[in-house]
Design a protein around this nucleic acid. Structure first.
Length: 195
DNA sequence: TAAGTGATCTCT
DNA sequence: GAGATCACTTAA
């Protein structure tokens, strides 16, 4: 496995963290006897109080408090009464920013059947796959808390993965400027080796 | 394409 | 306290 990403990894500009999380692993031990590991393939940045798409755009509230807290903690909230959204807080304390995890590729698990190797697409499904709920809200992404990040063992540090930057999903309410920002980052599938 | 779902926030 | 909204998913 790769090395565990320290808190300092997240104490950087949000879009930078969002890009560098692509290809990294998120590991969950929240489901007893069923470790789940995803290679992160899609992230989204929510950057600062000016970002009209961010929950923090209207200041501190009980819900968004973790966004104002230390980097490397989880911000987990429920949307549409059903789906947990998993974010990791970035940047310096008191600066509200976070990266939403939107998609991933299962790396391992007890059920290694075909279904388990299908991509997990969508933030609600990602949370469900990892077993992350509101219990993780505000907790640090550390092994002792059951969920953490690791660098990807297969990606050499010197190779830049191919990344597409797009508009964020489902944030039209943010207005033309902020909804158009290309804060969504997707890792292109590895190029198939030619025969 | 539309319904489901309930916490959260903004305004009375 | 009421009403609208919502960083979504699923079944058609």
């Amino acid at each position: 496995m790769g090395t565990i990403l320290p808190r300092s990894f997240f104490d950087r500009p949000t879009t930078e963290v969002a890009r560098e999380l692509l290809g990294a692993l998120i590991v969950s031990d929240l489901l007893p006897g069923d470790r789940r590991v995803l290679m992160i393939t899609e992230t989204e940045a929510y950057d600062g109080p000016q970002d009209r798409a961010s929950h923090a755009s209207r200041g501190l509230t009980p819900r968004n408090r973790p966004m104002f807290g230390p980097p490397g903690a989880f911000y987990v909230y429920l949307v549409y009464g059903m789906h947990w959204m998993v974010n990791v807080v970035t940047g310096p304390e008191h600066y509200p920013a976070a990266v939403l995890l939107r998609a991933g590729m299962p790396e391992q698990g007890p059920s290694r059947d075909a279904a388990a190797t299908d991509a997990i697409k969508g933030p609600g499904l990602l949370a469900r796959y990892l077993g992350v709920t509101g219990r993780m809200n505000g907790l640090a992404a550390q092994r002792k808390n059951g969920v953490w990040f690791e660098s990807h063992p297969l990606l050499p540090g010197r190779e830049t993965p191919r990344i597409v930057a797009s508009k964020r999903i489902g944030v039209e309410y943010a207005g033309p400027v902020w909804s158009a920002r290309r804060y969504n980052f997707t890792l292109l599938p590895a190029r198939r080796r030619d025969a």
